[in-house]
Amino acid sequence: MRHSRLTLWLLGGFTLLVYAYKILPVFVVVALAFNPPEFGSFPIVGFTTRWFGGLLDNPAVVTAVKTSLRLAVATAAIATVLGVAAAYALVRYPFRGRAAVQLLLTMPILVPHLIVGVGLLLAFRILGLSRSFTLMLLGHVALTMPFVILTTQHRLQAIPLYLEEASRTLGANGWQTFREVTLPLAAPAIVTGFVFAFMSSFDEVTATLFWRPANFDTVPIYVLSELQNSVSQELNALAAALVGFSVGVPVLTMLLLHLWTSRRRRPARAPEATPAWQPATEGDAR
């Protein structure tokens, strides 16, 4: 696709502006986290790292971060597997009631989390189940799966059927075809779905508030209870640390990957089948 220089400049400038807007809250929070006054606000009057010092000494914060990461990784992994399978079935196999299944699988994003939150507790009570990590994990999987399905589905639709047919003609079975042909082609969408699922599980608070067992705090829940008091500098520092972590880990992974691939010869494969950011985003989730 060729474009005039002017068009490219306009597009680039506009994108830059949008990114500035997108990153602004990160900038604000990180800047405030290094500001000395106890109650974070502008203008910046100095530089301190003491707000970060308190974080590692606070076992509640450390536990909450670990819990959130564990929950979000497990959620995203399960939701991706189940979601891709469902999306594949919906796209490739016409079956009776497909429209109904499609609607059902979109339902989790339609439903206010508050309603699911209370409703699931009622269901637990009727079934005599008590709250546990597993039940909450499955709840998160159900809530985040639509993101995987919606993003994967139309990518799968765009993969020409003849590619899969050719693979089968060449003797590959269904699973081999899926692994060797479909999966690589759908990879960008699947990874995006994984990241969506990870992020929305990491950020979920309403339903989690109702489902979690005792002694179980995720980051958003910890933040919520801290907000009874104020947006303390510790919250800004926590946010800044998470941002730093999420930037640091993938950048490091990418660097390593770059070293690794430049030592071996670059494979001459279609670039968008394995975008460079795929291992990176998976890396940041770990």
Binding site: I23, V29, D203, W277
Partner: peptide, 28 residues
């Protein structure tokens, strides 16, 4: 490709800040 990876990653950056704190950062 290389820039694109970074750009997509940047889109997710704000999600690491809890939703309420992120929303409240607009006050600043």
């Amino acid at each position: 490709d290389r820039f694109r990876a970074l750009m997509i990653l940047l889109l997710f950056l704000p999600s690491w800040i809890s939703f309420v704190v992120r929303t409240m950062s607009w006050l600043h």
